[in-house]
Amino acid sequence: MTAPANPLYRLLIALVLAIIAMVLDQRTPWAGPVRYFLGGLTAPIHYIAHLPVDSGEWLSEQAQSRSSLLDENRRLQRKSLILEQKVQRLAVLEAENVRLRELLNSSADLDANVLVAEIIGLDADPNRQELIINKGSGSQVITGQAVLDAQGLIGQVVEAGPLSSRVLLLTDASHAMSVQVNRNGVRAVLAGTGQTGGLRLLYVPDTADIQEGDLLVSTGLGQRYPRGYPVATITSVRHQSGAAFAEITARPTARIDRASHVLLVQPTPQPERSSAEVSDEG
């Protein structure tokens, strides 16, 4: 064999391919199939990386004593009884709500279907707040689906592979969504800061009635997130003389850093889905 062929041509081919891939990925939806195909090949890596966590959980489950299991079982049964009682009331309220909305000629929010998924990975890049879940388009996960835990919203699916999906968290610096204060209905834009548990409200006038401890719920504007789920609580409000807007920080109600399972909400069919809520705003 002689010396390797001149690699310069191959480098040029690779560079051109890389630049085409970047442009396609950023500007068009055509890179989707490539991502989908490679996503099927990368999913096993995420599954294997999650194995130590899984087996640790399995071991601790096996090591629990009978009495503590019985205790837990009793506690959960009591809790489920209380929750079932609440759900009974909810069915009546929901029916009433639908009737009232029909009277007002507005469309009814139907009860959404949910799918449970397990978190199998976190993004290793500190610049991004994303996580990987073990359900993909094989389980009817689609891009744009809202993801929540028992306490509130976590984020949305940004990439659905065949076996796993990638979820963009509320706290990512490129994420923003529309929320309103539960107490009085004041609307604002909630943006991530890139820090775990850090959110801020953008462009809120100094005089707006927002206080520490207020609950922010999703508005459903932008048609990305369902309406009325808790999103965050206000942690601090600072008024600075001279600044046009108040400086307001919030913390997600969902326990993003501790959750191991999440719920995916199946969107109810909407007449149109025009504007995405993900913005490039940082």
């Binding site: 690779a14 560079l15 391919l17 890389a18 630049i19 085409i20 891939a21 970047m22 396609l24 990925d25 950023q26 890179a31 490539v34 991502r35 993004d123 290793a124 890049d125 991004r128 994303e130 940004v158 990439e159 990638r166």
Partner: peptide, 10 residues
């Protein structure tokens, strides 16, 4: 890693 396609390829 969920990066832009081509980011590490380049």
């Amino acid at each position: 890693t969920g990066a832009t396609l081509g980011q590490w390829g380049l």
